[in-house]
Design a protein around this nucleic acid. Structure first.
Lengths: 344, 344
DNA sequence: TTGTAGGCGTTATCAA
DNA sequence: TTGATAACGCCTACAA
C-alpha cells in the first residue's frame, strides 16, 4: 500500500479526476466542492477537500484558462532591465498584481526591436490578459501595435500614438519642485547642472526649473542651463566652471543624483560648505547614492514604484473593459536631506 | 463582406479552426501544415499558411501545454528585487531562457515566507516546468520543498538542503583574487575593511584574503579585519581609524564598492594619494559606483549575470532529466581600474 | 494526402 | 444534491 500524500519529483501532479476518485464522487461534484459552489452537501465537500489536500491537488491553470478565456497572466515588456529605472516600476507592478492572483511574465528586449517583437509574439501566444511596456528612456517610443487582442499600458516611456494609454513621470513638475525647495530654503542664486539634452526628461526638468524661477522673477545663476552627461565627472567639471563664472552661486539643482555627487565633490574641493554656502539638490533619489553622500543629498523622487503600481491598476481596469488613453503624468516627490538645510 | 485580416482589440484571437475554415481544410490538416508535418501537399500547406497569416493566427500555448504536459515556462522566485544583486541574476536567466522559447514568470516574495509559499503555489498551478530561487543574501536559506513536481535551482543563496542544487559566488576566491592583485601591485601592508560580519559572504571574503596573505607570509595591516556596515560612512570611519593606528598602510581591500568609496574619501581627506600612497580595491564592481569614483575604482566582479545564465542552463538540464545536486561555486573576476596602479 | 475522433484538465449546463 | 456531457484549442493516432 502506498501513501500518495507527497508527490515526488518527476511524478505527474494530481488532477481533479484523481481527487474525485479518492473522494468517491464525480469530477463535476469535486469541481463544485473545491470552488465553493453552493450545490454540494457539506459532508461531501469536506470529503473532497480532504482528498485534495491528501494529493496536494492544485488546479491546472492551463485548463482553467482555456475555458475562461483569461489566463490571469500579464506580460511585462521592458526595454532595458539593466538600467535602474525599470526595476522599481517592475517592482510596483509585480506588487500590485502579485497581491491578487495575477502572475507576471517578464521579458527584456534589451532595446532591440526584433527581440521585442519576438517577445510580443511569445506573450500573445501565451494569451496574456494584458501588457505593460516599460521604456528605458523617458522619451516617447513607437506604439507596440494598435491592433492587439489585449490592452496595453505604457509606463515611463510614453507611446507615440495618442490613442495608447501612457503613464509617465511629471518631470516638469519635478523640476519646479526642486527649485521651489531651493527658493524655500532662502536661496536666490540658483544654477542648474544637468545631463544629456537629447532626453525629453532633461528638457522638461530644466523648463520646470526655469518656470518656477520665473514665477519669482529670479534669474538663473550662470545665465544658462549647463547640459552635459549623466556622470559624476560632468557634475565636477560643470561645477568648477560655474564657480569660476558665477562665484556667488548659492544653490545648485542637479539633474541627477550622480551629477549631484560630482557637484558636492567639486564644491568641497573649492572650499565651499554644503549646505551653508551652497545648497544642492539632486534628482532620482537613488537612495544608496543620495543617502550615502556627505552631506546626505536632498533629491526629487520620481515615485517609480508608484508608477508601476498605477500602471498595473490601469491595465487591470482595461482588462475589465475600461480602457483609457492619452498620457497621464504622475507627480514627483521632494525628499529633503541635509544638503539643502535653510541658510542660516 | 468583412476583411478579417486585422484583429481589433476586444476581438477573440483566431483559432486553428478559423484558419482551417478559411483555407478550406480540416483542423487536423491545418495543424499538420503549420507544424511542418510531412504528410501535407505543398499547395495545401501554402494555402493554410496564408490563411494563418491573414488571421494573425498564433497557436494557443495553453492548449498546447495542456497536451504536451510542458508549458515552456519557468518560475523565477526572488526574495528581494530591490536589492541590486538579484537583478543581474534575473537578467542572465531571462537572457538564457528568452533566446529560446521559454518564458519567465517573475515573483518577488519581499523576504516574506508567507508570500513565498503563496507565489510558489501560483507558479505550480501555472504548471511551470521548473523554478529558480534567487536569494537576497548570499547565506543559505531553507529549501523551498523537497517534494516538488518540478526541478528547482537555487541561485546566489544556496539551499540548506544538500540534495538541492545551488549556484553561488566563490567569495573566498574573490577575496583571494583581491589580495593577490594588491600583492601583484607591489603592496605589502594590506588592510581589509568590510561590512556586516553576520553575512557568510563577509567571512568568506575575509578568509580568502587572509589565506592569500598567508601564502606570502605577509601579515594583515592593522592586525585584524575591520568589520562594520555596508556603508560609505563606515568606509570613511574605518579608514580614519586605520590611518591613526597603522599609518604605513599601503593598500586597502574593501568588502564592497560602497565601503571603498568611503575609503577613497577618507584617504583623500588625510592627504594620501590613491594609488600612489595607498592602493584601493572594492568588491561588487557596481559599475556606476566604481567607474564614477575618483580615481576609478578597481573591483571584484561576482559575475552575477553569468550566475543567472548558468542557473538557467542547469535548470534546463534538470527539466530534461539531468538533475544535479550540491553547491556549485562560480568564480569572481578582477576588474582593475586606476585605484590599484602598481606603485612606482 | 486528407479527415475523423479522442483526449489533455477544467468548468458549466442540464438532466437525473 | 449529484453526475453525465459538452465545450475550451490543440495535437496525434488512426481511418478513409
Amino acid at each position: 500500500m502506498t501513501t500518495a500524500s507527497e508527490p515526488r519529483p518527476g511524478q505527474r501532479p494530481a488532477t481533479l479526476s484523481d481527487v474525485a476518485r479518492l473522494a468517491g464522487v464525480s469530477i463535476a461534484t469535486a469541481s463544485k466542492a473545491l470552488n465553493g459552489r453552493q450545490q454540494v452537501r457539506a459532508e461531501t465537500r469536506t470529503r473532497v477537500i480532504e482528498a485534495a489536500e491528501r494529493l496536494s491537488f492544485s488546479p491546472n491553470a492551463l485548463a482553467r484558462g482555456l475555458i475562461a478565456g483569461r489566463t490571469g497572466t500579464v506580460g511585462l515588456l521592458t526595454s532595458d532591465l539593466e538600467g535602474r529605472f525599470s526595476i522599481p516600476i517592475l517592482l510596483g507592478a509585480e506588487d500590485a498584481f502579485g497581491s491578487g492572483s495575477t502572475s507576471v511574465l517578464l521579458c527584456d528586449a534589451r532595446g532591440d526591436a526584433i527581440r521585442e517583437s519576438h517577445h510580443l509574439r511569445a506573450l500573445l501566444s501565451r494569451r496574456v490578459d494584458g501588457l505593460i511596456v516599460v521604456g528605458a528612456r523617458p522619451d516617447s517610443r513607437p506604439s507596440i501595435g494598435r491592433a492587439l487582442p489585449v490592452p496595453v499600458v505604457y509606463a515611463y516611456a510614453p507611446s507615440e500614438h495618442k490613442d495608447d494609454l501612457s503613464l509617465v513621470v511629471d518631470n516638469h513638475g519635478g523640476g519646479r519642485a526642486a527649485v521651489r525647495h531651493l527658493l524655500d530654503c532662502g536661496r536666490s542664486r540658483i544654477a542648474h547642472i544637468t545631463g544629456d539634452p537629447s532626453y525629453g526628461a532633461t528638457q522638461d526638468r530644466a523648463n520646470g526649473a526655469l518656470a518656477e524661477l520665473a514665477t519669482e522673477g529670479v534669474p538663473l545663476a550662470g545665465g544658462r542651463v549647463l547640459f552635459g552627461a549623466w556622470s559624476e565627472a560632468w557634475g565636477r567639471g560643470a561645477t568648477r566652471m560655474l564657480l569660476s563664472q558665477s562665484p556667488d552661486v548659492d544653490a545648485v539643482f542637479a539633474g541627477s543624483d550622480q551629477i549631484a555627487r560630482g557637484v558636492l565633490d567639486a564644491l568641497q574641493e573649492a572650499g565651499r560648505s554644503v549646505p551653508d554656502d551652497v545648497a544642492v539638490i539632486g534628482f532620482d533619489n537613488w537612495e544608496i547614492f543620495a543617502a550615502g553622500a556627505r552631506p546626505a543629498l536632498s533629491s526629487i523622487d520620481m515615485n517609480l514604484q508608484q508608477l508601476g503600481r498605477v500602471a498595473a491598476q490601469r491595465l487591470f481596469a482595461a482588462i475589465r473593459g475600461t480602457m483609457g488613453s492619452g498620457v497621464e503624468k504622475l507627480p514627483c516627490r521632494l525628499v529633503p536631506r541635509e544638503s539643502t538645510a535653510p541658510a542660516a
